[in-house]
C-alpha cells in the first residue's frame, strides 16, 4: 500500500496533468450543437491517432536483430497512420459540407 502512495507522489506532475486534461476535454465539448456530433466524434477519432507517436518511439528503440519487433512495429505505425490520415481527411470531408451555408 505504501508503495502506491510513493508511486503517486513520485508522479504527481503527471497526475495533475491527467486530471486537468480530463476537465479540458469535458469543457471543450460542452454545448456542441447536435449537427456537429458526428464530425466531432470523427475529429476526436483522428486525434487519438497520436498513439502513432508511441509506435514510432518503440520502433526507434528496437534492436537491429529484433525481427518480430520490426514486423509488429511496422504494422503499428501503418495502422496508426491510417487512423491519423484517414481520420483527419474524413472529418475534413464532413465539415466541407458546412462551408457554403452563408
Amino acid at each position: 500500500m505504501e508503495q502506491v502512495f510513493y508511486y503517486l507522489s513520485d508522479h504527481m506532475d503527471m497526475i495533475y496533468f491527467i486530471v486537468l486534461s480530463v476537465f479540458v476535454g469535458v469543457e471543450v465539448i460542452g454545448n456542441v450543437p447536435t449537427v456537429l456530433h458526428t464530425p466531432l466524434m470523427s475529429g476526436a477519432n483522428a486525434i487519438h491517432g497520436v498513439v502513432i507517436v508511441g509506435a514510432i518511439y518503440v520502433m526507434l528503440h528496437l534492436h537491429e536483430d529484433d525481427f518480430m519487433g520490426m514486423i509488429l512495429g511496422f504494422l503499428a505505425v501503418l495502422l496508426g497512420t491510417l487512423n491519423v490520415v484517414g481520420g483527419f481527411v474524413v472529418t475534413d470531408r464532413m465539415l466541407e459540407m458546412f462551408k457554403k451555408k452563408n
Binding site: G25, L40, H48, V51, V53
Partner: peptide
C-alpha cells in the same frame, strides 16, 4: 483515447497524454 493516454504515461510523452485524455474524456461526454 484512453489506450493512447496509457502509452503516453508509459513514455512520459505529453502529446500522447493530452491527445489521449482529451479524446477519452470528450468521447465519454459525447
Amino acid at each position: 483515447g484512453l489506450a493512447a493516454a496509457f502509452g503516453g504515461f508509459l513514455y512520459g510523452n505529453k502529446a500522447m497524454l493530452t491527445g489521449g485524455i482529451l479524446v477519452g474524456s470528450a468521447g465519454t461526454l459525447l
